[in-house]
Amino acid sequence: MNISGIAIAVVLATFPSAIPIWLAALGETVDQASGVLDLGVEGIMLMGAIAAFVVDYFYHSALIAFIVAGLVGLAFSAVHAFISITLNGDQVVSGTALWFIGWGLSGVIYAAYFGLAITPPSVPTIGSINIPVLTSLPIVGKVLFGESPLFYISILITIALWSIMFRTQFGLNLRSVGENPLVAEVMGVSPVIYRYVSVLFGGFMAGLAGAYLTVGLTGSFYFDMTAGMGFIAVALVYFGKWNPWRVSVGAVIFGLVYALSAELESIYTSVPYQFFSMWPYIATLLIILAVGKSAHAPDALTMPYVRE
């Protein structure tokens, strides 16, 4: 394969690999902007993945599958919201617990429906939306205008989130809750409501992200199929400095890393595949290193808000 062939293959695979991290990271961005760290994303993604898979398998509707996955994610994050916002519990511990629950429960649900079969069942994946004319443009045509619907949805959500967070009263209120909930409350902004809304939104997005993995990308469910994507999403929020645009850029960079390591793995068969597979994780370490201490995190991140 020549260089341009490789390049095209990598570019084509970039957005599909980016989407799950992208969606989850956008949700986590809102979460953290309001001052709540949700480490349960990984588990919630898995729950979204299994929920979407089961729904699509039995009811043959990708749309319903996505909606149900989002709602499952929302329900899961409600637990985190209750513990960290209502009970002022430790957000790290609560998030870790949710990660475990989602991690295990997704496998349990799978086994309950499909047993411990060797060959996993599969569902057809949702196709891509081809925008007429534009798709036929050389190279960029296929990449930018022939993507999965979730690609366009991710872009729309990015734009919408940025506008809401930085161009509306709601967004300012939300960010003020993340900086100093006491100040916000005195000014008539309820930290509890804003944090609940944010956490639930984050859960919904993580659910969608999981659904994309099964219904959108692979067509099957595998145990622990996220393999750290939820945590990479959390890392991207730091990289993106709590700004949806930067977070999106980070997600696309990660899509590129995934695509590149998969592509190179298939080309350089003499190099053990493990060295390509570990790339996304090493890239995460590097990206966190690159952010360094420069970013200003919301002041109240991980701090429970205790009313006097």
């Binding site: 513990i83 009970l87 609560s94 629950i101 295990g104 429960l105 496998g107």
Partner: peptide
């Protein structure tokens, strides 16, 4: 009973959640 071993992670997570409370 063909209950997958994964159930333990669920149990651990739930116990962790409740012990927090």
């Amino acid at each position: 009973y063909s209950v997958p071993i994964d159930v333990v992670i669920t149990i651990y997570g739930t116990i962790m959640l409740f012990s927090m409370i």
